[in-house]
């Protein structure tokens, strides 16, 4: 991660150039994180989660809430309790603080694993 790495909002995925800002100016609901150097940031409106090194969920994008339910209910839970491996499209790094960026495969239908607050159709 560094100033040349892409930066994105943890909620809406909007890209943001490096600055002193920590909060996304576009949606005001997420913190701005750098994707790992040489790695791809999520697309605006993309479905992704940020996890701690232990793969506990520490942020959920708005699009990913369609799969995982409200962010508040997913925070702190082990990612693999919430989604099947098949739901994961790509894994990278992000921060600060250091975290794991997990891109979810879209469309999100049928990837749920007893997501809190969301019933499997």
């Amino acid at each position: 991660m560094g100033t040349d790495a892409p930066r994105f909002c943890s909620r809406c995925g909007a890209p943001e150039p490096p600055s002193q800002r920590r909060i996304c100016p576009a949606c005001g609901k997420g913190v701005l994180l750098f994707a790992g150097r040489g790695e791809q940031a999520p697309a605006r409106g993309g479905a992704f989660v940020v996890c701690t090194g232990e793969l506990h969920v520490s942020a959920v994008s708005e699009a990913a809430e369609r799969l995982l339910g409200p962010e508040e209910r997913a925070l702190g839970r082990p990612l693999m309790e919430l989604v099947d491996e098949a739901a994961i499209a790509r894994v990278g790094t992000c921060g600060p603080p250091p975290g794991v960026l997990v891109m979810l495969r879209e469309p999100l239908q049928d990837l749920r694993k007893e997501a809190p607050g969301v019933r499997k159709r």
């Binding site: 943890s10 920590r22 909060i23 609901k29 913190v31 520490s58 959920v60």
Partner: peptide, 8 residues
């Protein structure tokens, strides 16, 4: 805000 990945 610099120690976490989300506002709440």
């Amino acid at each position: 805000l610099y120690e976490t990945h989300n506002i709440s």
